[in-house]
């Protein structure tokens, strides 16, 4: 591949007290691709995303976004990114439209109101645009949250479990939006616990486990990690879940929720 890297992570480490969460994470995300970061609860997905979005300082290693170091050039990184955190970060007292206008003003886009209205229409929020977000359901909040992240067309987008808590229809809508963005050249790093989401959406999938990336590749490449499919009465392609469980190991409870 010749496309430049939008995200480069090398030897990244982070501990909370003596709890080592990241123990040398290496990952490269090519520009314009969708890269999924898979991992069980507590694997450190959010920690990676927070370091990349300059909210958290790594202990060691290097991370660069759009060519800028996240520690030494944090301001330049913030110019290039947008974050949709794991939990919807919306202002509950403002209306949906006011939330969008707020972000548009802070990002200094021309015609903040027009941008807000376009996003409201695109995310099917026009009917509730004038209501306070406090009255929104979880799914509505999440859609507004993602819409807020798209303002200003940042080239790199972090989505931390974007579809957790969404109904199937909203989920498909988010998937469509993400694909559309990638089609226009936006780089997307997406964490998820849903294997089908990674399978459906991602160009490449990285698995974060025990503080490291233990697998990284296309779905086909990950499938090749499994022993050849055994011939049975019914031949069955391994699902990503089986691949995941095989490379992570079956120790303990099922590390991941499937739907």
């Amino acid at each position: 591949m010749t496309t430049p890297a939008a995200i480069e992570i090398a030897g990244l480490t982070k501990s909370y007290g003596d709890h080592a969460v990241l123990e040398g994470v290496d990952l490269v995300v090519r520009a314009g691709t969708i890269h999924a970061l898979l991992g069980s609860n507590g694997a450190g997905k959010t920690t990676v995303v927070r370091i990349l979005s300059t909210l958290l300082r790594p202990d060691g290693g290097r991370a660069a976004v759009a060519g800028h170091d996240v520690v030494t050039a944090a301001a330049a990184v913030r110019e290039s990114i947008s974050l949709t955190g794991q939990f919807a970060a919306v202002d509950a007292i403002l209306t949906g439209r006011e939330n969008l206008v707020l972000i548009a003003q802070l990002r200094r886009v021309d015609d903040a109101g027009g941008v807000a209205d376009a996003l409201l229409a695109r995310f099917d929020l026009t009917d509730v645009a004038g209501q306070r977000v406090a009255t929104y359901s979880g799914g509505l909040r999440r859609r507004l949250d993602i819409a807020m992240s798209l303002i200003g067309d940042p080239p790199v987008l972090f989505l931390d479990e974007p579809t957790t808590g969404l109904d199937p229809q909203s989920r498909l809508e988010v998937w469509r939006t993400v694909r559309e963005l990638a089609g226009h050249g936006t780089t997307v790093l997406l964490t998820t616990q849903y294997l089908d989401e990674a399978e459906q959406l991602a160009d490449r999938i990285a698995v974060l486990h025990d503080g490291r990336i233990i697998a990284d590749g296309t779905l086909a490449e990950l499938k090749a990690l499994l022993p050849p499919t055994t011939v049975e009465y019914v031949e069955k392609q391994p699902s990503l879940e089986e691949i995941f469980l095989a490379i992570v190991g079956h120790d303990g409870a099922s590390p991941m929720e499937t739907r």
């Binding site: 927070r50 979005s53 300059t54 909210l55 301001a75 913030r78 110019e79 990114i81 947008s82 974050l83 955190g85 939990f87 919807a88 970060a89 919306v90 202002d91 509950a92 972000i103 802070l106 990002r107 807020m148």
Partner: peptide, 13 residues
């Protein structure tokens, strides 16, 4: 606590 702070901190403001 509601995440608005983190959203703002990740933005170029």
């Amino acid at each position: 606590s509601g995440g608005v702070f983190e959203r703002l901190q990740s933005m170029p403001i």
